[in-house]
């Protein structure tokens, strides 16, 4: 019944389609790699990606991971999840070895179960990026503050640029998303947020500058219907993280594969398509600014929670009660 409906085209959430597509690809990929390393018959390296950042550039990312797999001589299994929270849960349980997660999930995972940094992409000479505030092209809003009382889109509850940064700035203004906006939604992807703004579903959204720029360069269908009214100061870029339990030799081999990508032609091609200069290694302290923001928001939330009941983490927020 369900598949019949899919074929008819009545119901087919894009997310589902991508999800099924990604799964199919994963199986195919595994089969390829399995054939290649049939003699080794090792356990594959499982690399997790979330919808938040990669969904719409899956093909590019698949190339990247395949490249890494070839470099380290191991089959690679791609694991896709919708949210950072799910990805972090899987990392904690050992169901994923390496993952591309945002800085807040890394910080939380580092604290909780010793999640380690692997590498971080360097964009335009710096492993930094911005959080854009994006509004429809015809919007009258000129600053983030103008969006008071409007409907807003965040990408993922644990996203830095898509949630933490705007929440931090609201907290500094003594506001929370619940008090500031009429309501907000989670789009689960920066790309979706751009679309939500473009079609007028929401009045504004916080979007990862890397995603917006990449989308604007490769497929400007939605970006051209939006405009950036606010660029919040640069933050440390989203890192690849690795489970603490992974064999250190393998850890270094994987890291090496990433770090040396820019020194061979195939790697450079993939990097340039992803608009990444190269991968670099950074210390944990590199993410201290994010930690500070997290703590600031957490403190203000605790203060707020003392009055009414605080929002639950992990599920989409309900809009402000009216």
């Amino acid at each position: 019944m369900f598949f019949a409906l899919i074929r008819k085209g009545y119901i087919m959430p894009k997310k589902f389609r991508c999800f099924i597509f990604a799964l199919t690809l994963t199986f195919l990929l595994r089969a390829d790699i399995a054939a290649q390393y049939a003699v080794a018959s090792q356990e594959p390296l499982r690399i997790g990606l979330t919808a938040v950042i990669v969904e719409d550039f899956l093909q590019l990312n698949r190339h990247l991971l395949q490249y890494v797999g070839e470099k380290i001589g191991m089959p690679v299994e791609l694991v896709l999840r919708k949210s950072y929270q799910e990805m972090n849960d899987m990392l904690e349980k050992g169901e994923v070895d390496v993952a591309f997660v945002c800085s807040p999930p890394y910080i939380l995972g580092h604290e909780k179960f010793g999640l380690e940094l692997l590498v971080v992409p360097q964009i335009d000479g710096q492993p930094l990026y911005y959080s854009y505030v994006v509004v429809p092209k015809d919007s009258e809003a000129k600053r983030f503050e103008d969006l008071r009382g409007k409907v807003y889109a965040f990408s993922d509850p644990l996203s830095n640029s898509g949630k933490l940064v705007p929440t931090y700035f609201l907290a500094k203004m003594g506001e929370t998303p619940e008090t500031f906006f009429k309501g907000y939604i989670y789009s689960h992807s920066h790309y979706n947020s751009i679309e939500a703004v473009a079609v007028g579903l929401v009045d504004g959204a916080s979007v990862d500058s890397y995603v917006w720029d990449l989308a604007d360069a490769t497929d400007p269908r939605f970006t051209k219907k939006t405009k950036i009214i606010e660029k919040f100061i640069p933050f440390p870029f989203t890192p690849f993280v690795i489970r603490k339990e992974i064999d250190p030799v393998l850890k270094e081999r994987i890291r090496g594969a990433f770090l040396n990508m820019h020194s061979d032609a195939k790697g450079r091609e993939i990097l340039s398509k992803l608009r990444i200069d190269k991968f670099v290694k950074v210390p944990d302290s590199f993410y201290n600014p994010v930690r500070k923001m997290l703590n600031f928001v957490k403190d203000s939330k605790i203060q707020e929670a003392k009055k009414p009941a605080g929002p639950k983490v992990g599920i989409t927020k309900s809009p402000k009660e009216r």
């Binding site: 009545y10 959430p13 989670y186 579903l201």
Partner: peptide, 30 residues
């Protein structure tokens, strides 16, 4: 079909998900 698929997203007010469902219905596969 829409109502069946909307149960969870409505419960969680997953606006984006609902919008996706409607978009697909409007667009049609063919």
């Amino acid at each position: 079909n829409l109502s069946r698929l909307s149960i969870k997203p409505v419960l969680h007010e997953e606006v984006w998900g609902l919008y996706g469902l409607i978009k697909e219905i409007i667009k049609g596969e063919d």
